[in-house]
Design a protein around this nucleic acid. Structure first.
Lengths: 165, 165
DNA sequence: CGTCACCTTGACACGGTTCAAGACACGTGG
DNA sequence: CCACGTGTCTTGAACCGTGTCAAGGTGACG
């Protein structure tokens, strides 16, 4: 799933990507802050909003999970703020790839399931810049972009970590 | 208080500013993720980390407050991500000023308590750019920067909202 | 009056956006 | 099987905004 927000001028900001088992969309206000779209097949379990006490009295384990999910969302948001805060594109891309590899890895394959447009809208860049950066990294042998642009293989993680500074 | 992080190359990213009554610094990992510094006088109450259940069994009200703080931090982080995500500086500055005015306002005075350097490190800009943007906004009559650079008066909030897009 | 920290302003270079064109894979219909 | 259209990605050229570097201004404080 991706959670996102459309701005008045048509731009789209992708807040986060969510995977199997993730809790997302906990909110407090009267209006929803984000929209959500599925990127693949799956089942969504919706929960009615209630106070933490009520939730805990009914199912302590689940209450703990929800709070843990909030905490994880906060940590991811903090990390992503650092990414967006950076000035140079290669730093952003490198950080992004490394974060992906932590979450999605089977071996060194980052299996990037999102399109260039999604990536760009998530990182605050244009698709052209994303494309250029990836080809540049590929030329340097740091990553490998298979034919159909499905997935990215990280060949040199330490190089990426160096780019992060 | 400001919470921040020093990068290996010496740059400093200010994650957030905290005020009287705010809970901050809730973390889960083994290592602390941020440093904290006081910007003025105050009293800090430190709490030993414990599980949510333990906390709730001791003081349900406080447990609720802590979770509410986490939620507020998450919302602020999401808003700040949008700011950092934006491409144009004036959008960032406008958003920043409006957020400040919500939190700190007495009337229309934004009472910006932080230095240009703090602002820049928070928004991911250089102090020169921040300075230039503020003078530009002042020339347009949107804001007013009093003599000693203490505080900023928002003269035209709707203009700022228009800049946000 | 001098020093220091902070802020402002200017000139210039560079990186990323923008605009435009082309490549490539894929599906569809003939 | 090919012709065609579509969506996605790549590549190129030019422009522009922001970073960088450097100088100067201003107020606080001894």
């Amino acid at each position: 799933m991706r959670t996102f927000k459309l701005l008045s001028d048509g731009r789209r900001r992708i807040d986060a990507f969510h995977r199997l088992g993730d809790n997302f969309g906990m909110e407090t206000g009267d209006e929803h802050r984000f929209s959500a779209e599925a990127l693949g097949d799956g089942t969504i379990v919706a929960h009615r909003r209630c106070s933490l006490e009520t939730l805990a009295s009914r199912d302590q384990t689940f209450a703990n999970q929800v709070v843990a999910s909030m905490m994880r969302s906060l940590e991811r948001a903090q990390d992503h703020m650092l990414l967006l805060w950076r000035k140079h594109i290669l730093e952003k891309i490198a950080t992004f790839l490394l974060v992906l590899s932590e979450r999605l890895t089977k071996d060194r394959q980052a299996d990037l399931p999102m399109s260039r447009i999604d990536t760009a809208d998530h990182l605050g860049l244009t698709i052209e810049t994303v494309s250029r950066s990836l080809t540049q990294l590929e030329r340097q042998g740091v990553i490998e972009v298979p034919a159909h642009h499905r997935g990215i293989v990280l060949r040199d993680k330490t190089a990426l970590q160096r780019l992060e500074a």
